[in-house]
Design a protein around this nucleic acid. Sequence first.
RNA 1: GGCCCGUUGGUGAAGCGGUUAACACACCAGCCUUUCACGCUGGCAUGCAGGGGUUCGAAUCCCCUACGGGUCACCA
Length: 499
Amino acid sequence: MNRKMAEVRTRYAPSPTGHLHIGGARTALFSYLWARRNNGSFVVRIEDTDVERNVADAEQKQLDGLKWLGIDWDESVDVGGPHAPYRSMERVDLYQQHLQKLIDAGHAYPCYCTAEELDEERQKQLAEGVAPKYSGRCRHLTEAEREAFRREGRTPSIRFRVPEGRILTIHDEVRGEVRFESDGIGDFIIQRPDGRPTYNFAVVVDDALMEITHVVRAEEHLSNTPRQVLLYEALGFDVPTFAHASLILNPDGKKMSKRDESVIQFIDQYRERGYLPESILNFLVLLGWAPEGDKAEEEIFSKEELINLFSLKRVSKAPAVFDTGKLNWLNNHYIKKSSTERITELAIPHLAKAGRISENPTGDERQWVTRLVGLYQEQLDWVAQIVDLTEVFFREEPVYSDEAKEVLSAEQVPEVIASLIQQLEAFTGELTPDEVKALLKSVQKETGHKGKKLFMPVRCAVTGETHGPDLRETISLLGKEKVLGRLRGFLEQRDRILG
RNA sequence: GGCCCGUUGGUGAAGCGGUUAACACACCAGCCUUUCACGCUGGCAUGCAGGGGUUCGAAUCCCCUACGGGUCACCA
């Protein structure tokens, strides 16, 4: 029993080509949860071998996204670790060493075909309806033939010699045993002509050297796995346990493409819109995983609970459909549970950007904004909605909806409004919700109108809408002057408004 | 085209040979409320893609078909 058996080690290995995608985040989350569940280690490794596609700050974006979600790691490019470096391109000497072993053992050979030649071969096979597969034409080149190619100036890539007639069995925690025939796999390139490894080779060397015990990733990698198993064997490494989660589909049930606009795909876009990290985390884990037993009836899970509950065996084989409605419901749930101060903090940038409040409100303004946010908190699916929701507080004159006009054309309305104006004019002091309540009570006494006949006209005259949050708080927040202005405006222009 | 994977209500999803086929979202109805929202209560699959088997008994096991997806890159 070696130490590999003792500790569970998982990793998330993104290529630094862009922001953290929901699919990647979910894969990272599953890996993370499994490691934490087993008191193991979670590694974030950067697979940057495709240098043409690398994006400058993508690596940092990936890490930032994970951090925001609350996914922390034990080893990576920033904190280092016993298996550093954690960036593929800084590990090329390691790949080279292992490549040499393969060559020495006859498991790998140089291939002098050019990209154009290979592409031509593939096109031909496709046209004939044959499975595209490398023909193996460089497999048995003599030293003389190789020398000839070299003299032509061709630099070889290195291919792995796939054994014939092998049945490869993969032990997958979510799918059980999956079998592949080696004959369906052509010799594949493990090192490019310029010396960089390809993904299939780099992951194997990295996962093995980093002592990864569980490789958790998306289904698109399942067909790659037999190639990797072959590499593990040829290199004399233990094969890790695999877990291939299904893909995430868009609401139409189609595979999510990067340019799919039916669903927001990047974690930071959710962050910008005011989704809470715990909502996203909760939502992500439910995308292809369900807890066992009694817990299966629950939907709300904290990170801590998930660490106790998570199991790779419970990951679904069937694809998961991204359900925006469910995400919004979850986020609304967490927003309702959050303190108003926290939501206010998140709302301020949105309101400030819309020019409604100052960048960094303090004192009275701060207090006012907090009350405003509190008024709408329970109906926010995401924080940025606060801007549209609170519009009525910032415009000069309300926009009267048709329903409001109908309410306002009732005969008792002018009397009620006039009475409220009087009450307000006579009022001095701070217009708290309780004071508003008292004022309305006076209007009731004076006019004899109560209930809907009293409150609806007031609401409609002040906000232009037949519905909205608590009237007393609304009036209090709007302030005496603004309310008076609107009430007077309504009476003066009643005919025009009611059209 | 070969090889792999999948298919439970409008949606997510539990279910692992015997259940009234959980639960949640959405939706509908009612209650609550001065309105909306929140909350609460109730309703919502004659049926588990289709067809064959196996079995006393199948959403659950096997086979075939259909459909969806993945992969066959000097991309991960």
